[in-house]
Nucleic acid binder design. Sequence first.
RNA 1: UGGGGCGUCGACAAGCGGUAAGUCACCGGAUUUUGAUUCCGGCAUUCGGAGGUUCGAAUCCUCCCGCCCCAGCCA
Length: 560
Amino acid sequence: MTSAGGAAPTNFIREIIQADLEAGRYDRVVTRFPPEPNGYLHIGHAKSICLNFGLAEAFGGRCNLRMDDTNPSKEDAEYERAIREDVRWLGFDWGEQVYYASDYFEQLYAWAVQLIRDGKAYVDDLSADEIRAYRGTLTEPGRESPYRDRPVAENLELFERMRSGEFPDGAKVLRARIDMASGNLNLRDPVMYRILHATHHRTGDRWCIYPMYDFAHGQSDAIEGVTHSVCTLEFEDHRPLYDWFCKALGIHHPRQIEFARLNLSYTVMSKRKLLQLVEEGRVAGWDDPRMPTISGLRRRGYTPEAIREFCARIGVAKKDSTVDLALLEHCLREDLNRRAPRRMAVLRPLKVVIENYPEGQTETFDAVNNPEDPSAGTRPVPFSRELYLERDDFMEDPPKKFFRLAPGREVRLRYAYFIRCVGVVKDADGRVVELRCTYDPATRGGDAPDGRKVKATLHWVSAAHAVEAEVRLYDRLFSHPNPDRAGEGSFLDHLNPDSLEVLRGCRLEPCLAGARAGDRVQFERLGYFCADPDTADGRPVFNRTVTLRDAWAKLRKKGG
RNA sequence: UGGGGCGUCGACAAGCGGUAAGUCACCGGAUUUUGAUUCCGGCAUUCGGAGGUUCGAAUCCUCCCGCCCCAGCCA
């Protein structure tokens, strides 16, 4: 069980469970999170994970992690490994063991035989195309297969031969015998087993017939004593079938409850599309920091706490909805604000020479590590005659609302001195390459004894002491709020061409030399950053997790 | 034209017959050695629409409209 749940607000699922408990329908609560190991987990799965583990925790029950591994042609042990890692990282504990649908293959087979014996399942020789044709359409009923009334004994024998490998893929299937005229397509004699001569990553070549989702999921729930099988809306149509199998088999009958899956603006969530992004090299892999995968978010610098808080805030309902990415980012900033140490980093360096500061002199200032957390203490930051400032913090011909550095203007260097720009050095092309400034020794520490004010406080890094680094600026992967439904064309048409900008030659304050992969910091005035695994000794690589809220950027955008 | 769902502020979401919570976003304004954080204020006379029941309806009934899902031997 978990210890990670927050105080999640109530929702309709909790109410159903509460009512079930009170009515005595179940005497305990068991849920499960059942991913298919055919891809990486994403933020949408996080919603389901938080929901299922959270439900179990709220009712003092248990939540099983179960691999829904019934299709060997798509699944892989690597995905399984990643799933465990991600669930664990999110902060959930699945207890003694991971469960596997594949562990139930023998039992599932026995249950299939039982249904055949009861005349409720039959072996069909129709091809896939024929089955489709016989199924009918949304508005017309289907037709019964000519093999539907095979004698039980023949069905039994054929099914056994299917298992023993006598038939090639697709030659036969086992079908439930329900109702070819049902308005619910799932009830038109759904396929229970198909022949698949494929090696399963766990059962190897022991099987060449594999159960379909509908004949595996509910039964797996039953075996594990699941009481509430929570899944997404698209399975609502499957519930009658889920119930039919449990009833026909006379086994423990969990209640299936459906909720709306998570959609996030500016991102795609389907595994198919995420896979495509990876396979076509649109991103660097499943853990590319632009991906909505758990591993991508982790590498980007997200915290499990922020993701859990987000999941608690979005709620659980049956309405199709798309949550604003801004909410996710808000949860992230909220968490990082209270825990990320502050550092100074200049991403686009502009050299500054303090003309009246003695050459060769260095002094040290104490900088606060985290204004939100006094216990985080301070660190020393060296200051000298030559510094780097952010190019964006200087404008030669500033607009009215710009109150950073400009010719003749005075600003404060954080923790250090007031400086005034007295000269601009340009190259042959007229590009600003260096600033000449003077400092006021009386403002040491950042306050003027005469009480004069400055409108801006800038971050800076001493040139001689700076650590060079690579910084990767990430932005949303898609430029359209809903890449899935943005008119005709592919979602790929809406990829944001500026989703990644790599900056080299960035200058960090010296204490960042020892950054280790996974370290999260706030670069003051810029945003939250996380040291990437590509970080090498003495050569940090930082990913921008998210920018700080930026009133100036907003202003600038408005003004054109 | 079949079956299953869903419609409350720009985005989420409470509300469960007694007269529209909260959050994000947005817009002010205060404090600030991060144009950050924090703080304070604003933001649905109205609940997809139309009727009806009721002293009273977002909540109950009827009809209509809109959106989503289902025709894999995927999950």
